[in-house]
Write a protein that binds this DNA or RNA. Structure first.
Length: 848
RNA sequence: GCCGAGGUGGCGGAACUGGUAGACGCGCUAGCCUCAGGAGCUAGUGCCCGCAAGGGCGUAUGGGUUCAAAUCCCGUCCUCGGUACCA
């Protein structure tokens, strides 16, 4: 016998994917009509990328599920806006330029061209018309414009801050300094810190508002990280004064911030940060050399080093004392690197008995430790502290604290603060860890800060009409000594906009986090040339409904974006105060070696090769199938073949329902005991149950189980392939649902098969991506019987097929008659029978 | 150190609010089909004992709560991410 085998065309992704991409582009399928009000708007945003040159699978891992979600939302009837752009300013371009003698712009734009091609090959539904490239003057012009608005409102200001400085090369940003020993990446010289006047944005003005996350649905870990970053703490500011000495008259105010004013009597010394302005003034002549040497050393350390708890404490006494305002006691003043110049007041009162760091310091240098607070039960006992006692309970009481003895700690905090305030020696205060945002960069490839320094008028803003202040095309960015922009005479010299006199342009450029702090607003009017944003568009489309991106941006980018939104709202540019309503942080795909993917490690996975081998749909689906999206993990293509096989099976199901594989003896026959009607019912049931589950999975970003459920449905259909119900109405409905559910995730193959179905049926084609998301038929999805596990004392002893909707009594009668249950009971009388989880299982409890 | 997330078969992972542990896929085994196959189809596959029926053990680890724990609580070990001596 010769089996007549249907020869169907093979599934060749390389043949169909580019064709559909071109067709969609022609149809403008992904161009969002922002003015369309007939459907609810849905702004879907994924973090834009730095144009490093090549997309790796990590980029796909972020973008692919986001794209699938956008397509899903669109099928649900939303007008989805899903833009893309490039975070195109930044250091790598400048470094590449120096290394390869190629202009940063040329390097950047050629990378962008390549990445556009790669992004298109994914088949993602980006709206390219809205694209933003931040190094384009049409974009950075508005960075400058916004900066000027902030300047007007006192949100931008100039202050002195240290930068890493290479004595050979000129100034360096932190990211250019490599290695623990702080050497210049170019010449290897030891880097120093040097103070420079730089520009800041006053994010601290919004510190309290940034602590408030009401109204936005963000992951708990991100909220915690931002909260800790802002670091609000309540306490008191206390004024100590320098004591008169042979070298100083005394009386200088030394302000400290403390969260525990109740421990003031336990202060046995003071510590100033090496940066503290009074160090110079108060240091005794005898201590000058050692203090100067210590400061020199501290200035070379990174903040992370200084903040390492494990490290032995270092410090030196400055040879002067301070007077404790509560008891008039003289205590020595030290300088130590564990106190930071930038936090609080840059000075602390040290209470070794009740602070671990102060305790370690006191032990190291043999300074007195005086206990002033202890649990009430030990009041009056003699005891020695072997470690700092950090009081946390409100029941603890004060000792060795004069008239505050026996007072409970919280009462003492209030009383001591109030008494200090009365005497003008302190007040209740709030301190924040967050500092203002330093936006100055001493580089070429960034947005020029639009001010001039006039000899007569000082700092003068460039008028709006003169924006943008363009980056000069050719400058010597490789040279050394000062800012690249300062080496361009034509750029540098300008007329003062106010007096017309000679002025010097600002030569700092902006931190690239400026660009990314408002880019999603610009997407909505990327070509607008009379303002940064279109308020009417913003009112319709923002806040962003859903933002996706990596957790590495949990603090900086996301916090700056929130700050910008609030600041822009205060400038009247935006009508709301939070940028992103819902945030999802996906995990990171690591290289096969478990390390972060990077060119230098050589563990970068090239998506182009995978696409060439398997096609974009398989790669997309595999990335979703790998695991839960928020987890990521080491890249391993093991298993991608399973996904490819699945798409092949879908292909076969759609194009060849009647064929069957010669290797399957059972093929072409219905399962035993099932007639055609039962088979059709089973198929419809499976399809609609899958639809319900898949819908919920898309909604909850559970793409891995979504794919698994589609595979299960395909497996069910395959079982019926070649039988009398294959190609029938139930089958046809199931296949239709399968394609619709697959469309967001694997857009090309589902579109191709959709078209072929139309062709076969002789109906007019329209894109599957414009179809409405199907509705679940609850009746079809319902099940008549189900398997009921029966436990005896919590162990499963039997499984019974029961009709849905039986009463508890009926179930019990049925279950207790089962031989296996009888055997498991061994003659014992059930003590009670639990019907758990809404009848999901039965547990018979027998006391033994 | 601290904060956050996590630890489930040979592997990636599933298990929604405590209720059938291991869905789906990879890999492996057997059979079918094929000139052949690293293609396709079907079946099996947590571990141990057993021909089988069946039984025992199992979610890093030690306790606990519960009729019932991967899930909740306490302790320990390990991995990953973040990082602040924050006064």
């Amino acid at each position: 016998m010769t089996t007549e085998r249907t020869r169907i065309e093979r599934y060749e992704p390389a043949a169909i994917e580019p064709r559909w991409q071109a067709r969609w582009a022609e149809l403008g399928l992904h161009r969002t009509d922002l003015a369309d009000t007939s459907r609810p708007p849905y702004y879907l945003l994924t973090m834009y990328d730095y144009p490093s040159g090549n997309l790796h699978v990590g980029h796909w891992y972020v973008k692919t599920p986001t794209d699938a979600f956008g397509r899903f939302r669109r099928m649900q009837g939303h007008n989805v806006f899903f833009p893309v752009g490039f975070d195109a300013f930044g250091l790598p371009a400048e470094n590449a330029a120096i290394r390869n003698r190629i202009h940063p712009a040329q390097w950047t734009y050629s990378n962008i061209a390549n990445m556009r091609r790669q992004l298109r090959s994914m088949g993602a539904g980006f709206d390219w018309d809205a694209e933003v490239v931040t190094c384009d003057p049409a974009y950075y012009r508005w960075n400058q414009w916004l900066f000027l608005r902030f300047l007007e409102r006192g949100l931008a200001y100039r202050a002195t801050a240290p930068v890493d400085w290479c004595p050979n090369d000129g100034t360096l940003a932190r990211e250019q300094v490599e290695g623990a020993d702080r050497r210049c990446w170019r010449c290897g010289a030891k880097v120093e810190k040097r103070d420079l006047a730089q520009w800041f944005l006053r994010i601290t003005r919004y510190a309290d508002e940034l602590l408030d996350f009401t109204g936005i649905d963000w992951p708990e870990p991100v909220r915690v990280m931002q909260t800790n970053w802002i670091g609000r703490s309540e306490g008191a500011e206390v004024v100590f004064r320098s004591a008169p000495d042979t070298h100083i008259p005394g009386g200088d105010e030394i302000r400290v911030f403390t969260t525990r004013p109740d421990t003031l009597f336990g202060a046995t010394f003071m510590v100033l940060a090496p940066e503290h302005p009074l160090v110079e003034k108060l240091t005794s002549p005898g201590q000058r050399p050692v203090v100067a040497a210590y400061i020199e050393q501290a200035r070379r350390e990174t903040e992370i080093e200084r903040l390492n708890t494990e490290r032995d404490k270092t410090g030196v006494p400055i040879g002067a004392d301070a007077i404790n305002p509560v008891n008039g006691e003289r205590i020595p003043i030290w300088v130590a690197d564990y106190v930071l110049g930038g936090y609080g007041t840059g000075a602390i009162m040290a209470v070794p008995a009740h602070d671990e760091r102060d305790f370690a310091f006191a032990r190291q240098f043999d300074l007195p430790i005086r206990e002033v607070i202890r649990p009430v039960a030990t009041y009056g006992e003699d005891r020695d502290l072997v470690e700092a006692y950090v009081s946390k309970t409100p029941d603890d009481v004060l000792v060795n604290s004069g008239r505050y003895n026996v007072m409970a700690a919280p009462d003492a905090i209030r009383a001591i603060t109030a008494d200090l305030e009365e005497r003008g020696e302190g007040k209740a205060a709030v301190s924040y860890r967050i500092r203002d945002w330093l936006i100055s960069r001493q580089r070429y490839w960034g947005t020029p800060i639009p001010v001039v320094h006039c000899e007569a008028c000082g700092i003068v803003a460039v008028p709006d009409a003169d924006l943008p202040v363009l980056l000069p095309e050719t400058v010597d960015y490789a040279g050394s000594g000062e800012n690249p922009l300062g080496r361009d005479a034509a750029f540098l010299h300008a007329a003062c906009p106010r007096c017309g006199g000679p002025a010097r342009r600002e030569t700092d450029t902006m931190d690239t986090f400026m660009d990314s702090s408002w880019y999603w607003f610009r997407y909505l009017s990327s070509r607008k040339d009379d303002g940064p944003v279109d308020r009417a568009m913003l009112d319709r489309w923002t806040p962003v409904a859903q933002y996706t991106g990596g957790a590495e941006h949990a603090v900086m980018h996301l916090l700056y974006s929130r700050f910008f939104t609030k600041a822009m709202a205060d400038c009247g540019l935006v009508g709301h105060r939070e940028p992103f309503l819902r945030l999802f942080n996906q995990g990171q795909v690591l290289g096969a070696d478990g390390e972060r993917m990077s060119k230098s490690r050589g563990n970068v996975e090239d998506p182009d090769a995978l696409v060439a081998q398997y096609g974009a749909d398989t790669v997309r689906l595999f990335l979703m199938f790998m695991g839960p999206w928020d987890q990521g993990g080491p890249w391993s293509p093991t298993g991608i073949g399973g996904v490819a096989r699945f798409l092949n099976r879908v292909w076969t199901l759609v194009l060849d329902p009647h064929g069957h594989e010669p290797g399957d003896a059972e093929a072409g026959r219905l399962p035993t005991g099932e007639d055609a009607a039962a088979a059709e019912k089973a198929i419809r049931g499976a399809a609609h149950r899958t639809l319900a589950a898949v819908t919920a999975d898309y909604e909850g970003f559970r793409f891995n189980t979504m794919v698994a459920k589609l595979m299960e449905l395909a497996n069910v259909l395959f079982r019926y392939r070649g039988t009398e119900v294959a190609g029938g109405p139930a089958w046809d409905e199931a296949v239709r649902l399968l394609l619709l559910m697959l469309a967001p995730a694997a857009p090309h193959v589902s579109e191709e098969l959709w078209e072929r179905r139309h062709a076969a049926a002789g109906t007019a084609w329209s894109s599957i991506h414009l179809e409405r998301w199907p509705e679940v038929d609850a009746a079809a999805a319902a099940v008549a019987t189900r398997e009921l596990p029966v436990q005896v004392n919590g162990k499963v002893r039997d499984r019974v097929e029961i009709a849905v909707g039986l009463s508890a009594a009926e179930v019990e009668a049925l279950v207790l008659a089962r031989p296996k249950v009888v055997a498991a009971l061994g003659g014992a009388t059930p003590e009670r029978i639990i019907h758990a989880g809404g009848g999901r299982l039965v547990n018979i409890v027998v006391r033994g």
